[in-house]
Design a protein around this nucleic acid. Sequence first.
DNA 1: TTGACAGACGATAATAATTATCGTCTCCTG
DNA 2: CAGGAGACGATAATTATTATCGTCTGTCAA
Lengths: 153, 153
Amino acid sequence: MTQVEAKEFRELCAACGIAVTHQRQVLFEVLKSTPGHPSPEEVYSSVKKQIPSISLATVYKNIRLFLNSGIFREVSLHHGSLRVEMNRRPHHHLVCTVCKSISDIDEEELGPMRSPGKLPGGFFAERFSIDVLGRCAACQQIPPDGDEPDDLN
Amino acid sequence: MTQVEAKEFRELCAACGIAVTHQRQVLFEVLKSTPGHPSPEEVYSSVKKQIPSISLATVYKNIRLFLNSGIFREVSLHHGSLRVEMNRRPHHHLVCTVCKSISDIDEEELGPMRSPGKLPGGFFAERFSIDVLGRCAACQQIPPDGDEPDDLN
DNA sequence: TTGACAGACGATAATAATTATCGTCTCCTG
DNA sequence: CAGGAGACGATAATTATTATCGTCTGTCAA
């Protein structure tokens, strides 16, 4: 795996225009080989086994770099602060990837859903929450990435 | 609205066994009448117009109380820290409401999806991200609320 | 090889978001 | 009217994350 993965990583870095360093290589491999969605602290302690001198800031910095480069994604694109759901009707969310606004859409408007019940793996589904990622009407002109419109909601 | 809403609020509080106070009443009404999903700071500044002496801590405390009582919900049930998505295949998330673990489920396993395109309101949908909320296999015995199992993902 | 620069690192300070603590106040109950 | 429970507000404390800064390393030209 070191062989192939190292190659993959070098190519990814080249494509994104970022430098290949030992720390980044190890971080990348830890991320790829860790099941689930570990917190930065957990990632830090794994990476530390291989590079005891690494700092938490480096882990954050490079995770953020990977995210910005599109190598990985964030699990939740929601705002980083507590948001309350006041809408009592069944609905889902339209999340604009440009201005980060979140608006509601009624469940019926989005179309039919599958119903609750067992899923493979023994998980019992009670309810579905859908984030529709895309661009709000106001952000469709702007090319990807621009961060200006402050369409807070 | 004061009449009917106040009554509604008093009944909700009675049902949840929490006290009715002026601060909570105002907070409740601000939450209900604010479109979108305001941050605690935004809520605070709205409430402040009616109760200038209120403190931010009271806002947080009571929002948390409302959430715990089930009067409102959180928009995102994800962990409060940065999580990275390493899985490159199209997939969605199984979020256990008891132990808060998040695991992946492949898109095909979940069934057919609707495809990208325009939605009502002019929003352009690029991709769908589904959180299936429910109980993981390990948490199905436990009655609602128990917080013990530490099935970290 | 040397000199010099760019970018990466690690330590640490600084922010931001949220929660806990604590003394005070208020309202109900007896 | 006294006593107690719970609510408030101020503020300290935590947690999560980002910024700053001095140092180090690897690369390229001379």
